[in-house]
Design a binder for these strands. Structure first.
Lengths: 153, 153
DNA sequence: GTAAGGGTTAAACTTTGGTTTAAGTCAAGG
DNA sequence: CCTTGACTTAAACCAAAGTTTAACCCTTAC
């Protein structure tokens, strides 16, 4: 197994397009040494960095946020397992919030869609700015089909 | 309360920018009659349509998908509560899947990030194509920091 | 020697979901 | 009469996350 990897090898192993990896390099998310001929040579730990990026994206982070997180890692050597874990531990709260939001959405859908409150700017379902609201009882406007009652004002 | 609404009134009540409402009209998500002078006049039930659109977006649907869903509704009169509910009932499965995915992500993060498997194309965490996998036990590669072990092959 | 199969770059293009801008119409108020 | 505010349009613009294209360089194989 080679000490360093070409971009093609990285792409193959990471399951990404080479263009994406170049794009990440431009964004500063990964770094590469260069051969005399200008070709990139990646240290093997770039694979874990790329995997981290993918997972972070699924958690809902933008590349910019991911870049900020990665900036705290050493760029000259592979981070330790503990360093990776510290980074990802901050995702927990974010995931909990998003889960609560989706659960609230799911649990209030059947009672809320079709009811008058769906027209309302005040309806939690349409405006779940407050993640905690997802845990509450949800809207209670089961008023039939007349919008005036709830939209008025 | 007016029978029909101007775009400004709709924007105000729906909590959207007028530009967004025009955009939705171009996309065929809402319709409007026109005055002699060319100004849009919206029936009041557009408010519920807009609320539906917002909720559908939060569920993760694209405007195109939302448009397809809305295409099944009558455009000449307000849909009934039952019609709205039928549309949204199909979201349930999608929400369940996404919730399971996020829960899997959350529950496997601490054990998986930092471990060797994160470099792997095979790692569930980095590739949760299979939503059901989120319910399973997750990766079991708690191998320390040597990537060769898991990346090789 | 020439073709194939990597690699390089900058720049243009793509998609989604809108917003912004420029230029114009219209009605009401002072 | 003139300004103000709300409306109209088409077209340009934006951000994110990449992909595609065009032109070029190397190395290896035949």
């Amino acid at each position: 197994m080679a000490e360093v990897l070409t971009i093609g090898e990285v792409a193959e192993r990471a399951g990404l397009a080479a263009s994406a990896i170049r794009f990440y390099e431009r964004r500063g998310l990964v770094t590469a040494a260069r051969e005399a001929n200008g070709q990139r040579r990646f240290r093997r730990d770039v694979l874990r960095r790329l995997a981290f990026i993918r997972v972070a994206q699924r958690v809902g982070l933008s590349l910019e946020e991911i870049g900020e997180a990665l900036a705290g890692l050493p760029s000259d050597r592979a981070p330790t397992a503990a360093q990776w874990q510290r980074l990802s531990s901050s995702w927990r709260g974010r995931l909990d919030e998003r889960i609560a939001l989706l659960e609230g959405l799911r649990d209030n859908l059947s009672s809320c869609i079709g009811c008058g409150c769906l027209s309302l700017r005040r309806c939690w379902l349409a405006n779940p700015d407050d993640a905690a609201a997802g845990l509450g009882p949800g809207p209670r406007f089961l008023l039939g089909d007349r919008e005036e009652d709830v939209v008025a004002g």
